[in-house]
């Protein structure tokens, strides 16, 4: 049996209390919510925090509020997100495809956004990593994916982040000295180690999705119908005028870099256009050109790059109104309703 290392455990009852503990303990402390990402990492000794600060007992993090959009507390489990009627389609589809039903009952939206980056040289037991003399991300000096790289290229593997970026969402980060709100894409840095712009004393407390009347979708590439992390995530949110002209467009990619990101060029390109086959093809090429996967996840690297174009097409055609149910069933291996 793989065992957790020893740790001290704190269970604050409020965000303020949690922020205070976090500030007091310094970088030796880590936040735990659902634990589905952190605990496997601790068992594999990727992280051995001296103190775990649990967010589970903080009622504020479970709140859902409606206003000019929707605000999710970061502590809502992924299953709870799925049970909220107003959850936008892209977020719903992304959430429904995370891991497994059990893990969705445990993992939180905030946890998925803060998911550690992944790499086949990193997500291994301590003994395995010892056999390769470790890697840049943890305990080693070399990035085995790109040995000349000074930067860790571990992959951002969150499904919800690209969906939320497409939906133009923001996150609230709360520290002992106050809170700030930043767009979701600003939460991330293209660095496999320092992949979040969250400061160590900050807690991701809420996710705000503005009311934009977006039609949105999320397509995920993975080998199997469950369990697997994305090896490509395409999220698109479009707002159409009455004449089927795109007024606003946001396209985001996940799992092809150390961060999820907005594909600005394609987003700009789509504005003011109708989704003709030609427009879709042009946009897909722009989107696919930004997918630069590395050889550190499941499936063949070159193939993953090649199909980015197709997955972008699935997303755009679905938003155009094409019947993509059969295709989605084949790819996702399950029905995903908006």
């Amino acid at each position: 049996m793989m065992r957790l290392p020893w740790f001290d455990y704190r269970a604050p009852r409020s965000i303020a209390e949690a922020a205070k503990i976090l500030a007091g303990e310094g970088p030796q402390a880590m936040l735990i919510a659902g634990g589905t990402d952190l605990l496997p990492n601790m068992k594999r000794r990727h992280q051995t925090p001296k103190v775990l600060v649990s967010l589970k007992g903080i009622p504020e993090l479970k709140k859902v509020s409606n206003g000019s959009g929707i605000v999710f507390g970061s502590g809502l489990t992924l299953s709870e997100i799925l049970n909220i009627e107003k959850t936008p389609t892209a977020l719903r589809q992304a959430t429904a495809q995370i891991a497994t039903a059990h893990l969705r009952n445990m993992g939180t939206l905030g946890g998925n956004l803060c998911l550690d980056t992944r790499c086949t040289y990193y997500n291994q037991n301590y003994e395995w990593r010892k056999a390769i003399d470790f890697c840049l991300k943890k305990d080693g000096a070399t990035c085995w994916v790109a040995t000349a790289s000074k930067r860790c290229v571990a992959v951002s593997s969150t499904d919800t982040a690209p969906a939320l970026i497409a939906l133009n969402a923001s996150v609230v980060l709360t520290g002992s000295s106050g809170e700030r709100e930043i767009p979701v894409d600003a939460l991330y840095r293209n660095d496999g180690i320092e992949y979040l712009s969250r400061r160590p004393d900050e807690i991701l407390t809420a996710i705000k999705i503005p009311q934009k009347n977006f039609k949105s979708t999320y397509w995920k590439l993975r080998r199997r119908g469950s369990f697997d992390f994305p090896i490509l995530g395409v999220a698109v949110a479009l707002r159409f005028s009455s004449g089927n002209i795109i007024q606003d467009a946001r396209v985001a990619l996940g799992a092809v870099a150390s961060r999820p990101f907005l594909v600005e060029k394609a987003s700009e390109y789509l504005k003011g256009k109708a989704l003709s086959d030609d427009v879709i093809a042009e946009a897909c090429a722009m989107i696919a050109s930004r997918a630069k996967p590395m050889d550190n996840t499941d499936m063949d690297l070159y193939w993953r790059k090649e199909v980015a174009d197709d997955f972008a097409g699935y997303a755009l055609r679905e938003l155009r109104g094409d019947d993509m149910r059969a295709m989605r069933m084949r790819i996702a291996r399950q029905e995903l309703t908006g």
Binding site: T120, N123, R223, R224, G225, Q334
Partner: peptide
């Protein structure tokens, strides 16, 4: 080294596959 000595990365069919 073994590329993927884990249940997650050694891919076996789930009920949906």
């Amino acid at each position: 080294v073994h590329r993927m000595p884990s249940m997650l990365e050694y891919k076996s069919l789930t009920s949906l596959d």
